[in-house]
Amino acid sequence: MTDFTQLSTNFLTTDEAARVDAALMSSQEKFATRLAIYALRSLDRISTEMGKPIESISPQEIGTWIASDRTLQAQIEIDASFASFFTHLVLSSLNPLKQAARSTGVAIDNLSVLQVITWFEQEAARRVRENP
């Protein structure tokens, strides 16, 4: 997996944003892809700090970590509901990340951004085929 600590507060590199933008998906699907990548980056940080795999982190641990994360404190101070909102986004993204991991045959911890984008693009194409 990418070393996310070097990305600072940017959740997508310029190259990754361009790859999402170039994917054959609707705007809504591209947005969901970006959210999943943001969630994966957050989950990777949580996993690293807790010393356990993403799959074994509970929703409560995710919420507690987000509420106490120094990099999110400014947002939380501006809007007290931000921690809850961001926790919900991360938890909602777990399902597609689990599906992408199963599809690629790797643990969520080992998913690459490209694998996430590819999975979302394949799912978009499948939905188009099934619902012309």
Rank of each mutant, 00 (worst) to 15 (best):
E130Q: 12
R127E: 12
I54P: 06
V90G: 04
F11S: 12
N95H: 05
V20C: 02
S92L: 05
A74Q: 10
Q115H: 03
V113E: 10
Q99T: 03
N110G: 13
L40H: 10
P53T: 15
A74N: 08
W119P: 05
L40F: 08
L89P: 03
A83E: 04
Q73P: 00
T13Y: 07
S92T: 04
I54Q: 13
L12E: 10
Q122L: 14
R126Y: 05
Q28W: 11
N10W: 12
A23Y: 11
S92M: 04
E77K: 14
L91H: 02
L97N: 06
K98A: 05
R19S: 14
P59R: 09
L91A: 09
E77C: 01
I76H: 05
W119I: 00
T104P: 06
G51V: 07
W65M: 00
F86V: 03
Q99N: 13
Q60I: 05
A80P: 13
H88M: 04
Q75G: 13
N110F: 15
A22Q: 14
E130D: 15
E55D: 15
I46W: 10
S92A: 07
S112V: 08
V20T: 01
L97F: 01
Q115T: 02
F31H: 09
Q75P: 00
L91W: 01
P53V: 06
M50K: 06
A124E: 10
S103G: 12
L111T: 13
E55V: 09
T2W: 07
L72H: 02
D21S: 02
T2N: 04
I66P: 09
I37M: 09
E55T: 12
T13A: 15
T87H: 11
L114H: 08
T5I: 00
S68Y: 05
Q99R: 13
I66C: 01
L40D: 06
G63V: 03
L94K: 08
A74F: 03
K30D: 08
T5H: 07
G105N: 01
Q99F: 02
A18V: 14
D3H: 01
L24G: 11
D15V: 06
T9R: 14
A107I: 05
A39M: 03
S92N: 04
I57Y: 00
F4D: 10
E61G: 00
F120L: 02
L24I: 06
L40W: 13
S27R: 11
A107K: 13
A32T: 09
D44F: 05
L43E: 08
R41N: 07
R126P: 01
V113T: 15
P132W: 02
I46G: 08
G105C: 03
R70K: 04
T14E: 11
D3E: 12
P132T: 11
D69P: 01
A36M: 00
I76D: 06
S8N: 08
Q28E: 15
D44H: 09
E16K: 07
S84C: 12
D69W: 05
Y38F: 14
N10I: 06
T14M: 12
S84E: 15
I78K: 11
T48I: 10
N110K: 09
A23G: 06
R129S: 14
N131P: 03
L97S: 08
L111A: 09
F85K: 09
A67E: 11
F120R: 01
S42E: 15
S93M: 07
Q122D: 03
R19T: 08
A17Q: 14
A17K: 07
D21C: 03
I62P: 03
D109F: 08
